[in-house]
């Protein structure tokens, strides 16, 4: 028996919004410690890694490890039927071929149940090596989304350049060039407004606008985003998911011919 109950069901709705444009289907690996999902996008350019710890759920039971292959378009349709303040429970029998979503209104007066067929997905799990990153940049997630959106007008790539002074995002194309510099902030009233750069060595890497913009669909999950970069390795874009876990996107850099 697997059962995971989340009073803050809106988090699960936001997680779905954060992955559904990138992935058509994915396996949810449910274990005693929580739920893990790892999947590449169709073009194998990026990797999504989702971690939801059991401690973050209001009730969590997983008697045996189960892998639930889900069509994310279908799952998204179902989660759209949940209100933002609904309590969401996911449950499945051991070796079942369906998963059930239960949505309870806060006053328990409305209870909806949706059963979805599971899929057999033959997905390779990739090993993500432990990496010491040269630059770790924390910035407001809304600011990052805005920068990615604004620079997308100029070209297909965004250059992210991190030095001890701060971080620079730039793009170039037919209409001209764009440069946005963010300096490390001094003291801020709210921690989530801070721009913090932890740099060992300066790094400049180029990434696809299209993918960065898809990652920013996770913006509603967290007021801050963390970018980790080292030369010639994938960028990590991480959003915390409340107290429950995180979503990380890995994106291979673009390289000059």
């Amino acid at each position: 028996m697997f059962e995971a109950r989340l009073v803050q069901g809106s988090l699960l709705k936001k997680v779905m919004e954060a992955i559904k444009d990138l992935l058509n289907e994915a396996s949810f690996d449910c274990a005693h410690s929580g739920i893990l999902l790892q999947a590449m996008d169709n073009s194998h350019v990026s990797l999504v890694s989702l971690n939801l710890r059991k401690e973050g759920f209001d009730k969590y039971r997983c008697d045996r490890n189960i892998v639930m292959g889900m069509n994310l378009t279908s799952m998204s349709k179902i989660l759209k039927c949940a209100s933002n303040d609904d309590i969401i429970t996911m449950k499945a029998q051991d070796s079942a071929d369906t998963v059930t979503f239960v949505f309870e209104s806060p006053n328990q007066e409305k209870v909806s149940e949706y059963e979805m067929k599971l899929m057999n997905l033959d997905q390779d799990q990739l090993g993500i090596p432990e990496t010491e990153y040269c630059c770790i940049i924390k910035l407001p997630s809304g600011e990052f989304a805005r920068i990615c959106r604004d620079l997308s007008q100029f070209g297909e790539s965004i250059v992210i350049s991190c030095t001890k002074e701060g971080v620079k995002f730039s793009a170039a194309g037919d209409i001209g060039t764009a440069n946005i510099k963010l300096a490390q902030t001094g003291t801020v009233d709210k921690e989530e407004d801070a721009v913090i750069v932890d740099m060992q060595e300066p790094v400049t890497l180029t990434f696809s606008c299209k993918y960065l913009n898809m990652f920013t669909k996770a913006t509603p999950l967290s007021p801050q985003v963390c970018l980790s970069m080292s030369p010639d390795v994938p960028l990590v874009v991480e959003y915390k998911i409340g107290e429950i876990g995180h979503i990380r996107y890995y994106l291979a850099p673009r390289i000059g011919d």
């Binding site: 993500i128 180029t206 291979a252 673009r254």
Partner: peptide, 14 residues
């Protein structure tokens, strides 16, 4: 001209 590397050239199947 930039080319895009696949994520699988960095991360290998377990």
């Amino acid at each position: 001209i930039m080319s895009q590397k696949s994520i699988t050239s960095f991360f290998k199947p377990n």
